[in-house]
Design a protein around this nucleic acid. Structure first.
Lengths: 148, 148
DNA sequence: GATAGAGCTTCCAGTGACTGGAAGGTCAAG
DNA sequence: CTTGACCTTCCAGTCACTGGAAGCTCTATC
């Protein structure tokens, strides 16, 4: 199976497959005489695993760990569960940050008339208000991922 | 006011201030004879505005628009409100994606015993299951921002 | 057998929003 | 006059890709 077929069979693009190989997430596959990558059914299976893990928001580094857990026949199911739940906690932390942003913005927008006049509490609050997202103790938060 | 003072007065780090200047979000400030950046109170005020907007998840490009709305005395408040609400919609879209991931993962984890035995439905589902995030019609979704 | 076009190869550059660090100039205090 | 904090510029790295150029290979059609 060449890379294009492996891509459509797994749902991971050819570009991404090469990238994952480059960063060491997956091993280099066999090559045909012409130098084309040649994937076995097992490797395609692994690519599908990777795709699902990525859809669940796991990073490449975390997928490395997941693949290790997958192939480790002696690990306990609690190891997997702990890993999964740690990720759930992280996802929920990000959700809370997004929710705080949306709530603040909705609150500001509610007080804005939204008519043809220039007076706007949203801008005024950003311009001279107190903290933008008030109910947030002094945690060292990460942000990042606001909008692209 | 030099960059360090502007940074602590605005909550935007010196590195970020230079970056924002570099990418054109803010104009180059005056310089002292020695070449130090010298910020006026108005510029510090703008930096605070930027900080609040960033805390609400606006990108640099969006902040450019917000600054334009801020300084445009003739724009209607509806322009600002529309912009804000579009961002709320985007934030909510991201929240839904995160929630779908977390829900799927929690569901998988619930069926996992989490004991010392190797048998684990989480891994099994990733390995051979159907779609990872099932109740999702064929939208062209963006993912990205799973975990860093 | 020639040729077209799809698909493969490698490599380099860019994305967004920073962060870290090196090399060197400046300023205020002791 | 020295120390150390602060400023300057510039370059590289982060994360997970994506786009594109240049060139080789494969398959189908004429």
């Amino acid at each position: 199976m060449n890379i294009g077929q492996a891509a459509s069979a797994s749902g991971v693009s050819a570009k991404m497959i090469r990238y994952y190989e480059q960063v060491g997430l997956i091993a280099s596959p066999a090559r045909t005489e012409a130098g084309y990558r040649d994937y076995s059914p097992d490797e395609v299976h692994m690519l599908r695993f990777i795709r699902r893990a990525r859809d669940l928001g796991f990073s490449v580094e975390q997928m490395t760990n997941l693949l290790a857990l997958w192939s480790d026949r002696s690990r306990a199911s609690s190891d997997v569960k702990r890993f999964a739940m740690a990720h759930v906690v992280e996802l929920e932390r990000k959700m809370r940050e997004l929710r705080a942003m949306a709530d603040t913005l909705r609150h500001l927008a509610k007080t804005c008339h939204g008519d043809e006049r220039p007076n706007c509490p949203i801008i005024e609050e950003l311009s001279s208000g107190h903290e933008a997202v008030p109910p947030k103790p002094k945690r060292a938060s990460s942000r990042r991922y606001g909008a692209h």
